[in-house]
């Protein structure tokens, strides 16, 4: 086994539950590489909801919170509020993070609480059998849209930027080294970070949308359709060509929620000591 896996995976849970050629395993590896370089495995606290991608943290030798469908972000906020020293990372899928848990994402981003949210986007509801998801492309044939999808897909990165996240980036499993660097930035960022990972799902997306269930075909589809872009201003250009732009969208520093809470507590304590009530 890979030395990273030897060091950081729970051996009694292996082999992975994922299908052959699934991108989730690559995300595990890219994340572990970032964690290994930073040496923060003991500080990690991971949270996940329901879905294929929610199995990602379960295999890692860190503290894991597995909660209700879509509610991973609120649970992680509670965790961060009670243990501010922990590095909290949430793994969700496109159904878990953008559909049922979409509103939680907005409010967590608005608070700018220090945590990372990784949304693994495979463009379909994979675990439940290949139904249309909020991230499915227009015209895609799925189990529930046999004549082509009419709804426009949600762009998770744009939503996160609009809601006030301070680090927003997009990676893909076809570019694992860049993905690992993105995870490293996410883990060192002070504030709410949102990382969307475009992943392959040979069994559902591959068979129903792209036309082949071969892992090689789906990896090549990602390599052909995901374009790394340095400048976020060029994203619209790439999107106009029907491709998916990758790279950092936004990285800014804003007051962090737990630090502000700490400051407020200090202020109230000082005011009370002087005899006031706030």
């Amino acid at each position: 086994m890979n030395p990273l896996g030897e060091k950081y995976l729970r051996k009694n849970f292996l082999p992975f539950i994922f299908c052959p050629g699934c991108g989730d395993g690559m995300i595990v590896q890219a994340f572990l590489e970032a964690v290994d370089e930073l040496g923060i495995i003991d500080d990690l606290a991971l949270a996940a909801g329901i879905g294929c991608s929610a199995w990602i943290p379960v295999y890692m030798h860190a503290d894991v919170l597995k909660v209700l469908h879509g509610r991973a972000i609120p649970a992680a906020i509670g965790l961060k509020a009670t243990r501010p020293s922990r590095k909290v990372v949430v793994f969700t899928g496109d159904g878990d993070g953008l559909a049922i848990g979409g509103l939680h994402l907005l409010h967590a981003a608005r608070r700018n609480i220090e945590m990372g949210v990784v949304v693994v986007n495979n463009q379909i509801y994979a675990m439940t059998g290949g139904q249309v998801a909020p991230s499915t492309q227009v015209g895609a044939r799925t189990q529930t849209t046999p004549y082509g999808n009419l709804e426009k897909p949600l762009d998770g990165c744009k939503i996160a930027v609009a809601a006030g996240a301070t680090f927003v980036s997009r990676g893909s499993t076809a570019h694992p080294k860049a993905l690992s660097r993105t995870f490293k930035k996410m883990l060192t960022h002070k504030g709410f970070s949102f990382v969307e990972v475009i992943s392959q799902c040979p069994v559902q997306t591959g068979r129903y949308i792209h036309g082949s269930g071969a892992p090689q075909f789906n990896l090549q589809w990602l390599k052909d359709n995901c374009v790394p872009v340095d400048d976020p201003a060029k994203w619209a250009e790439v999107e106009a060509q029907g491709k998916i732009p990758l790279g950092d969208v936004l990285q800014v520093q804003k007051p962090e929620f737990m630090e502000e809470v700490e400051k407020m507590n200090q202020r109230v304590k000082e005011a009370r000591a002087k005899g006031g009530d706030r």
Partner: peptide, 11 residues
């Protein structure tokens, strides 16, 4: 090959 192995089986 190591980076792309989804099951971390390859060294």
């Amino acid at each position: 090959c190591e980076l792309h192995c989804p099951d971390l089986a390859l060294t």
